[in-house]
Every structure is written in structure tokens, then in C-alpha cells.
């Protein structure tokens, strides 16, 4: 499985998988190496269509590709476009927020009632933690320079050391 992941990732730089990674990079603020390092890229890539269906997920990715192309080479322009075209969009905003939630906490949140009224209530669209790995690899732990509670033990006495990545005062 992991071999396939790597092959898929690398043989097609503009593949849908890579586009999914670039969207994730833009929405999370973590770079692609860090996202791959969680081991969850393919899990989340497969999860989306399994919950909201291929058509909705395809439209979401199409919107991202359009936005990405328009904002290419200008970070602040891209930032503005992502807000306008994706986060503020009633169809795609909830999906984008769910993607952020997945990466940071490993949790899929049931989509809002307003979204479900328009796009239908999908059977798998319930709030759940994707897996134990999704929990322990959540970006929230990296963001706060802490270890996931009850996972990835840091060792005796580690509480006396400055947090990893902490800037010196």
C-alpha cells in the first residue's frame, strides 16, 4: 500500500492526488513533505469521495484547480482567491473546513444542515475520528509543539525540556 502511495505520488506531478496535496498545503499552512510524513495523504484523499461521492468531490477539486491557477505565483492573491472562491462559498466552504479539521484533528465533522439540505444527507457523513493514526498524526500537536495525549510518548523527564520548535524567548 505504501509503495503504491509513493508511486502514485511521484509519477504524476499534476495528478489529482498532487492537486489534493497542494490544496491541503494551502489550507493547513504545513508543507507537502510534512503532510506526506503523516502517512495520511492517501487515507484522506480516499475518504472525501467515500463520504460525499465522486461528483461533489470532483467539483471541489475543480474549483481548487481553477483558484490555484489564477493565484499561481502570487501568495497574497492566492490567499484572497481561496477565501472568496472556496472558504466563503456555500458549497465548497464546508468541505474545505472539513479538510482542515481532518488534517489538524483527524476528525471528520458531519457537514452542516444547510449543506445537507442542498447536496443531500450522505450515509457516511457522520462525525468520527478517522483512525488512531489520524488522531496521533493530527497537525494540532505539531502546531502547539506538544505530543498527542496518550500517544507518541516523549520519555521520562521530557516535560522539563523546552517544546520542540519553540523560539527562544
Amino acid at each position: 500500500m505504501d509503495h503504491d502511495r509513493a508511486v502514485a505520488a511521484h509519477h504524476a506531478p499534476d495528478s489529482p492526488l498532487q492537486q489534493f496535496v497542494s490544496l491541503s498545503v494551502t489550507l493547513t499552512g504545513f508543507d507537502d513533505a510534512e503532510l506526506w510524513g503523516t502517512g495520511l495523504v492517501n487515507t484522506y484523499y480516499a475518504l472525501f469521495p467515500s463520504i460525499v461521492g465522486d461528483a461533489v468531490f470532483g467539483d471541489f477539486m475543480t474549483r481548487w484547480n481553477y483558484t490555484h491557477r489564477r493565484g499561481a505565483g502570487d501568495a497574497s492573491q492566492l490567499h484572497t482567491l481561496v477565501r472568496q472562491q472556496i472558504l466563503d462559498d456555500p458549497d465548497f466552504g464546508p468541505l474545505a473546513r472539513n479538510l482542515i479539521s481532518l488534517w489538524y484533528t483527524g476528525q471528520w465533522n458531519q457537514l452542516p444542515a444547510a449543506w445537507r439540505n442542498v447536496h443531500g444527507a450522505w450515509a457516511n457523513d457522520a462525525t468520527f475520528i478517522v483512525s488512531s493514526a489520524a488522531y496521533s498524526e493530527g497537525l494540532v500537536w505539531k502546531a502547539i509543539h506538544a505530543h498527542p495525549i496518550a500517544a507518541k510518548q516523549p520519555g521520562y523527564g521530557s516535560w522539563a525540556l523546552p517544546p520542540d520548535g519553540e523560539e527562544p524567548a
Binding site: 505504501d2 502511495r5 509513493a6 511521484h10 513533505a33 510534512e34 506526506w36 510524513g37 503523516t38 502517512g39
Partner: peptide, 16 residues
Amino acid sequence: QALMAIPSGRGDGTTV
């Protein structure tokens, strides 16, 4: 473990 999961970009399916 994180480095092991990152594609190396070498074109041969390897990771870092």
C-alpha cells in the same frame, strides 16, 4: 517514521 512516508521524487517509487 515521517521521513519514511515521504515520496523521494526520484521516479522509482522510493521514499525518503
